[in-house]
Design a protein around this nucleic acid. Structure first.
Lengths: 215, 215
DNA sequence: GCCGACTATCGAACGACGTTCCATTCGGAG
DNA sequence: CTCCGAATGGAACGTCGTTCGATAGTCGGC
């Protein structure tokens, strides 16, 4: 069981979600395809279990955070930890979008984040919305992060900066009257860092949250 | 070509992303599978074109918005319009997560949103991040919206509220010492409205944005 | 020593899918 | 009528998730 999950995670790390295949997994484990079905009911459960497995690592990382007297600062640190984990393993983003079993480590992570809102002066509903909003920022930014890279970039044939520059070049060439915004921020897009983009979005909602909590 | 796209959208509306199949599409069009390949290079392009097709409708809806003297209010209205469109067609969420061709209507929609940031007192980078953050909130919330419903709910066998209540019941039964947050907001989760959740998250980032812009 | 019951393994086979390929048909220009 | 590119249709291929039955191994009870 444990060997199945670690092998599945290894496949995901190497080739992303499409690389996780029952046949590939069986080959790596040196067994037959049918054996895997004795441990998991199907592909969904396999994916869920494998993902929950690494969410466990994220959870321990989150729990190991020092913590401070500022709940929002702690909230920020947790979100950053989660985001960094997704940057390392982009296929993780797909997990949060099919959270059928809101159980296990995913629930515990949700608890860790939501617990910070208990330290803020908010109504229960506001707490619920705050925790969801923070998670939403992570997922929302991570979503167009893992998927934006076509195969040629993953293969290392094309540099990421070159890839962005190609788009920026197209944007710069657009009609400035019809696309005042896009032409204006083409340069920003060219060299942009996904992590900075995430932090900016996160800090916006946290600023709003701080305002709401009156802290 | 046009018929192919409208049929593809119809299939997506009826059964979501897994329902969009070359064979199903060919059957609906009364042709062969190979014919579709004369119009599109593959499944990815088919999905992109079909999605961009409906994004066009969202774009006209966004452009039809009245507009006000408050850029942030306009930003909010646009985000809500986009979110509502995704609520109607949950499979749309998957589109924004694989925006390979940042061209077409998607780009125009991005322009429409970003243009509002030009009316705010921000640096170019802040404008770029603001537009991305707003889109991120929409995508982030919409993501765990379309996917959270298992098949039994889509089939109408189980009511959505019953489905949520089932989770809430589990959460209420957890140890309050170990899960102080989850047990506290179980009631909120039970009857929660996805749209309210989205609006709360959106308003948080917009409040932060308003703070940043000093408006 | 034999037995059934349970745990666990294996790979052939099935149906659905995306994609390729090629023979065929159509329609207008010469 | 001829011809050539535009457009069509569907058989065929490889891969995928999943199912299924055959086959061992293990262990307690008689």
């Amino acid at each position: 069981m444990e060997a199945v999950l670690t092998a599945a995670v290894a496949l995901l790390d190497e080739g992303g979600k499409p690389a996780l295949t029952f046949r590939a997994l069986a080959t790596r484990l040196g067994t037959g395809v049918g054996s895997i079905y004795w441990y998991v009911a199907g592909k969904d459960e396999l994916f869920d279990r494998a993902t929950d497995h690494v969410i466990g690592e994220v959870l321990t990382a989150v729990r190991a955070l020092p913590g401070s007297d500022d709940p929002i600062a702690d909230l920020r640190a947790m979100a950053v930890t989660l985001f960094d984990a997704i940057m390392d393993r982009p296929w993780l983003a797909a997990y949060f979008m099919r959270n059928t079993d809101v159980q296990g480590n995913s629930l515990r992570l949700y608890e860790e984040i939501g617990r910070q809102t208990l330290r803020l002066d908010l109504t229960p509903r506001q707490r619920f919305h705050a925790a969801s909003a923070v998670l939403g920022v992570v997922v929302g930014t991570a979503a167009d992060l893992g998927m934006e890279l076509p195969q040629e970039v993953l293969d290392g044939q094309v540099d990421r900066d070159q890839f962005l520059e190609r788009f920026a070049e197209t944007w710069r060439g657009l009609d400035a009257a019809e696309f005042p915004f896009v032409t204006a921020i083409a340069d920003e897009f060219a060299g942009h860092d996904d992590r900075d983009q995430f932090l900016a979005a996160l800090d916006l909602t946290l600023a709003g949250l701080r305002l709401q909590a009156g802290a």
